[in-house]
Amino acid sequence: MSLAEGVRRGEVRATAKLITLIENHPESAVEDLRALHPHTGNAHIVGITGSPGIGKSTLTDALAKRWRKDGAHIGIIAVDPNSPFSGGALLGDRIRMQELATDPGVFIRSMGARGRLGGLARATHNAIRVLDAGGKDVILVETVGVGQSELDIVRTADTVVVGLVPGMGDDIQTIKAGILEVADVFVINKADRPDARRLMMELQTMLDLDPERHSHWEPPIERTVATTGEGIEMLMAAIRNHWEHLTYSGELEQRRRERYAAELQSVVEDYWRMRFFEYWQREGHWEQVVEQLLRKETDPFSAARKLVAPFLDSESRRVNL
């Protein structure tokens, strides 16, 4: 039985194994992903992002528990950075999700970003596809959250939840650093702290300054104390509202169209790149060409064309065969 079949049957082991394959040997996972593709598109993909210390994992945990009460099946992917020196990673997000570990309706996967800088791992996107095809209703994706470029999540999630915490000192800077644009829902966590109100007002002021951008959907600002569960009900309602808005306004389809276009482009690029380098590992004389460049016997532009031409030939022969 293939891993994809196992995933479709909701088998934990197969799901886990396929995600590992995606992480380690993505080219070997293509068959399974192909088989799963028709079964995707049903899950609501929710991104949770924000600086370290805002309680992303605790929010994720609280939201998952709340959704479970309604019987929804939940997938969680939590991404952490890898050490740039050793390549290793400490993945500690599950500590805040201990109670979910044995819930058969929840699948949690910790992921190292493995050098990628956009807030997710290269494998996250296809891991979501696996969970989606495996019948998860909601997939919560927790980003690395280094507070800077969290662009991946915009390309991946249907709803992006941006968390802030009062008294972190860098509130306004964080907001300015482009988070305003990516948020579909804001949540001020640890809202029992004294300066929560002030943060909320500042945030609202900034949203009001830019009404054009939010003409279709104005991001609501929710307040939670995730450790006690306070405000989680409202947060979930806001996330669901956004989902309904996406569905009924046709924006969901538009977003997914854009997402597929982007994905197609990157798959094509990856595919060609892979084929080319395979070819070059067999046939290449890269260093010779570099020497020629050095001696000014050729220029990079002509050289590139000369390099690619025989590759294209061999590809077309392959296709014609």
Binding site: G55, T58, L90, I95, R96, Q98, T227, T228
Partner: peptide
């Protein structure tokens, strides 16, 4: 009172 959930690891 509720129970304490450890939150910080590393």
């Amino acid at each position: 009172f509720g129970v304490h959930q450890a939150s910080v690891v590393f």
